[in-house]
Nucleic acid binder design. Sequence first.
DNA 1: CAAAGTTAATCAAACGATTGATTAATTGTT
DNA 2: AACAATTAATCAATCGTTTGATTAACTTTG
Lengths: 215, 215
Amino acid sequence: MEKEKIDKRDHILDVAERIFAEYGFDGASTRLISGEAGVNMAMLNYYFGSKEGLLIAIFERRTSTFHSLIRDIGKKENTTSWQKVEEYVNAYLDRVFNNNCFQKVIHQEMAVKRTGELADKVIQMIMQNVLEFRKILHEGIEKGEFGKDTDTDMVVATLFGIKSQLVNAPQIASIMLGYDTQDPQNIDEKLKPRVNNYLKKLLKAYLLVENDNEH
Amino acid sequence: MEKEKIDKRDHILDVAERIFAEYGFDGASTRLISGEAGVNMAMLNYYFGSKEGLLIAIFERRTSTFHSLIRDIGKKENTTSWQKVEEYVNAYLDRVFNNNCFQKVIHQEMAVKRTGELADKVIQMIMQNVLEFRKILHEGIEKGEFGKDTDTDMVVATLFGIKSQLVNAPQIASIMLGYDTQDPQNIDEKLKPRVNNYLKKLLKAYLLVENDNEH
DNA sequence: CAAAGTTAATCAAACGATTGATTAATTGTT
DNA sequence: AACAATTAATCAATCGTTTGATTAACTTTG
């Protein structure tokens, strides 16, 4: 009864994001969302127009603070491409693991056939991410820092894929790693450093190869 | 009118698998499935009892021919662990890209909160896959073939993750790679060899490191 | 200041449409 | 005739959405 001052619209978005992540867009009913949020059903349409409008609002809230985060990394001057890769991986993992539910929602939306503005927006946002990382990699190849035969697109797919495997298949990940990968404490103390450490060793081994892996 | 002799039950499963992959389980209606399959709606319940029964039937059809494929690889004697990894990756990619729709269905099911026998079966099947691959990796570590600090679970997550990124996010993958990654011809001629080639370089670089990456 | 007017927020109830499932009748096969 | 396969019609339930009324807070007016 203390902290209830946070915006109700924002509260609904928080709850809806969680419900959509758990049950999927089609599997989550507006009744469940409004019930969990403790608001009347009509409020969803009052605030967001429709169920899809609610999803769009969730999406736009996350993307509004997104653009500035990525853009800065690639522009630094006095750093090697490998250092940029490290920084990018850091920033990416931070953002991904801190927006656990949102990441699930995005990935679920990408997996189903949808038409409309939202589908385009999702793709556009992801591609922005892709291009930024790929630019760093291409730069590294040009500078001779990374191997000429580096498959940059697949490297991107690797980073994104590992993320989606850990975030979007939490049951499997939890069994594999031996602890609940949804628990925020485990994420910060165990999962994040481990993935970070692994990814850097993996990418280092692949990218910074001593140029003798031709043929 | 010639090849209509294939079992009608099997035909329904084919169509349903495709529809579930496209629209998700909750997003696909029984009317759409029966319509696309050209059968009466009641036939779904007649054959499979319920919508979930239909999903279970899809699942069981694929898993029935699955077990024998994997089991053989790990048991070979006169091969190095790295060769086993190569063979496993080959077999895995083959199976994954040839059951495109089914892979999407599985992954979507893992992403949503479900209870019941199916959820357990899905996890069980995937874990079987995980354990088999992990066993090969552990064996390689024991033989000194792979580095002692190899993070086997993350290697598994890498393989599975890249797959899910390419299969479950086909729009993104298609834009990234520059061609339709859903087209069977592209899959066989372009995607499969490329992923295969990349994965082997990547894993080789990480696993077969010259043991000087300690610290 | 007080009364009237205006607005946004909230609610219970109901809407038409669609969902998965079932029924009872009909057709096909052996 | 007996059984399996197939159909159209219908079921209750749930879906997302809309409605009309009510409340509370602020603005305007006299």
